[in-house]
């Protein structure tokens, strides 16, 4: 009964009023419903408890909260392998492949080995989809990004783009809007087309890549393992089902929002670059080189990269 219902404290980096925030709120409701009311979720938005999205995982590890609903990409400083539980850069063509990857033999075990090492358990992913580059100059293909000065998220992406001749600039997220206005940077890797459009970044910067190809960060739901093990089987089922639905919802929702943004942006005269198959392949090859570098960083990274590669071969992506 709900008198002795357990409440999980879950923290996300998304804001309550964003589409992702609304999906997270629906997730909380679903978990309560699916568990027959025995499990409740108290959702904290905008990393408001911990104060910094990269630290939310730690808060769950320490037990300040129960589950982390940010993304594995923030944790690559702990272990390079988290890159491949977050943004499999240059890897998948769409979120559905990455959802399916977890069902591939050995994948779940490799991911579990990584998370369990830090006292955490991955419950599932929810993936909004590919991001789009914003630019003040045309970037229709690989040669055009030579000397492209753009704000790049730290880590593997800077590595890949450097290899292709771009000049990634390390810059705090909060400085990007002004930098895009003043022309300090030519462009930025910011977010999805729809979010960038909502943020008003195309008024000065009239070019974008769409459909995206370079980065597809997965958001995860990861719980403190001790807390997770204490849940009853049906409660775990409710969480698993909840995140699965959140995943399908956010992926389709972002697709629709992007499609709306495409219409508005085209009407506004913004140029959208759809990279050719050859150029996408060039990008993927640069990424695969970076993966080889990444494999040296930790045994968990090597294991995960091998399984991703095996899956991509089985699936015909490679």
């Amino acid at each position: 009964g709900s008198a002795n219902a357990k409440t999980l404290k879950i923290e996300t980096h998304f804001t309550a009023s964003s589409p992702n925030g609304e999906v997270a709120a629906q997730f909380a409701k679903n978990v309560e419903m699916f568990s027959g009311g025995s499990l409740k979720v108290e959702m904290f938005y905008s990393s408001s408890v911990t104060g910094k999205s990269a630290e939310v995982f730690n808060s769950a590890q320490t037990g300040i909260i129960d589950c982390d609903m940010t993304g594995a990409g923030y944790q690559t400083g702990k272990n390079a392998a988290f890159q491949f539980a977050g943004d499999v850069m240059g890897g998948y063509d769409n979120p559905y492949q990455q959802y399916d990857f977890l069902k591939f033999p050995g994948a779940q075990d490799a991911v579990d080995a990584l998370y369990n090492k830090y006292g955490m358990t991955l419950i599932g992913w929810w993936i909004p989809g590919h991001e789009s580059l914003i630019s003040s100059k045309p970037i229709p293909d690989v040669p055009s990004i030579k000397d492209f000065k753009f704000r790049s998220p730290p880590g593997m992406e800077s590595m890949i783009f450097s290899a292709l001749g771009a000049k990634p600039i390390v810059m705090d997220f909060g400085e990007v809007p002004t930098a895009l206005q003043t022309g300090l940077i030519d462009g930025a890797d910011y977010s999805s087309l729809a979010t960038n459009y909502a943020g008003g970044h195309y008024e000065k910067n009239r070019y974008a890549t769409y459909p995206g190809f370079h980065s597809m960060p997965a958001d995860h739901l990861a719980c403190n393992t001790k807390v997770w093990k204490k849940l009853k089987p049906h409660e775990r089922g409710a969480m698993k089902a909840g995140i699965e639905i959140a995943g399908r919802t956010i992926t389709s929702l972002v697709e629709r929002k992007n499609a709306e943004a495409v219409k508005a942006l085209l009407a506004d005269g913004v140029t959208l670059h759809d990279w050719s198959r050859e150029d996408r392949l060039k990008f993927r090859n640069a990424a695969l080189n970076a993966w080889q570098e990444w494999k040296k960083k930790s045994p968990e990274a090597a294991a995960l990269i091998d399984i991703h590669t095996a899956y991509m071969k089985a699936n015909g992506i490679l």
Binding site: S18, G199, G200, E203
Partner: peptide, 9 residues
């Protein structure tokens, strides 16, 4: 603007 996804411009 980031919190509400409104145009910072």
């Amino acid at each position: 603007g980031l919190t509400t996804e409104t145009s910072i411009t």
